[in-house]
Amino acid sequence: MTDVAETCVQENPVERYLRMDRIPHIWCPGCGIGTTVNCFARAIEQADVDLEKLAIVSGIGCTGRVAGYLNFDSFHTTHGRAIPFATGLKLANPDLKVVVYSGDGDLVAIGGNHFIHAARRNADLTVICVNNFNYAMTGGQAAPTTPLDAMGTTAPYGVCERPFNLPFLAKSCGAVYVARWTTYHVRQITKAMVEAMNKDGFSFVEIISPCPTLYERRNRLGSGLDRMKWFKENSVIKNGSDTRNIDIAYQQPIICGKFVDIDRPSLLEVTEAKIGDIRGKQRWADVSRRQKKSIEQTE
């Protein structure tokens, strides 16, 4: 007989990246958020990231709880405001790798303004958005991502609004990396997270996730497992797709892939080019003299 202890006691490879003292987590059986966290834990091993310098920022909601389970400097901020918090954190301490990890309602409804502006200014952030098509923490209300006609507790006759196409939104505002996958695509998610984290500037990964307790149940779409099968059968991988054509319609195929991977000077790069020089080489010299002259003239 082999040594039972030896064969059974093996550390889960992602445990070291989790706050195991906070497990079990609050997510429901069949929820996809934990899957994405698993992918993330594997991605940080492959990405060019100093784990001491990794900071996770979340907003509020089910995905907002991710920060609380990851064993890094982690910040659970206010609803919708993870991105501006992360922007301040990164600008004040450019050595950090700052990842925003939150849900669709948090990032693009209440936080939508911050989302578009962070993409516009190409803030040096990786934004991971778990899109479960509804507000789950509060009980399944419709979100700006809920497909037209799908039900939510605040849309009992079906949603009447067209949802956001998040990759298109991110791309048109200036994101340098944009990908979309479902929680069925664990290897692709991991790879997308690695690529996103290795980019300078605003990188965005959307992950379509089941919410069996609320979205799937209300819309009679089955269990978490049924949903994974549906993702498997109804996802169409089209890398490089024009993001204008990848809207998500209710129970229609989901276009997945990497859509954007470009280079454009990031906020930090531009800031350092303009101001870093002044601060470094010319400190107390030209600008100082100019400011001094101007101060004396005006005052």
């Binding site: 400097d73 501006p84 990164k90 004040a92």
Partner: peptide, 22 residues
């Protein structure tokens, strides 16, 4: 570092991120 944010909500939390950045 000065940054003009997109609104006052963003400003009031960007500074808190900055404090945690030191």
């Amino acid at each position: 570092t000065f940054i003009q944010m997109e609104d006052e909500i963003a400003s009031s939390i960007a500074i808190q991120g900055a404090v945690w950045g030191g």
